[in-house]
Amino acid sequence: MAVDRFPIEASHIMMFARSVGDANPIYHDAEYAAKTEPGAIIAPPTFMQASAQFDPEYSLRPKIGQPWFGSGKEPTGVKKGSTGGGGGNQGTLHAEQHFEYHRHPKVGDVLTTTVKPGKTWEKEGRRGGKLIFSETITEYRDQQGELVVTARGVGVRTERPATQ
């Protein structure tokens, strides 16, 4: 799930900042951004997650001509018991996310990612059922090969719907 080319683009940052309710003009006004300490439109702190847009294999995006597990005529577009295809990693939720910023990416950067699996562990859920945690480490490097952001995500696979 590595991304060969994640261009940091102004419109994408504008839309992303809007979606998280962040009105800071550094994310949409180049003239304003030029006068700030970073000196340019930079990526908001959680923007690296949007590299999914540039991952051709990303499982949580419907793909042209392929089945999709969301609803249409039926509550799901994938037959029960079928494995593979249809997208999704059903039953997996996001448990943790950590970012380390070596610098903040700015518009014009073109990043690449390398993905390494991390630890895996198990826990008993509060309402029973096994919870299986697995960690993924993603390194985002710039066009000079310099490490820009290190991200560590933890996913949890549940045997039944998680409750709060």
Partner: peptide
């Protein structure tokens, strides 16, 4: 979850300033 993290990140950057975060988890 990442929407909640993204909204929380805006609280942080509004407080500490642009480009000042070194870690957020």
């Amino acid at each position: 979850g990442m929407l909640t993290m993204g909204m929380t990140g805006a609280m942080l950057t509004d407080y500490v300033g642009d480009g000042r975060l070194t870690k957020f988890g």
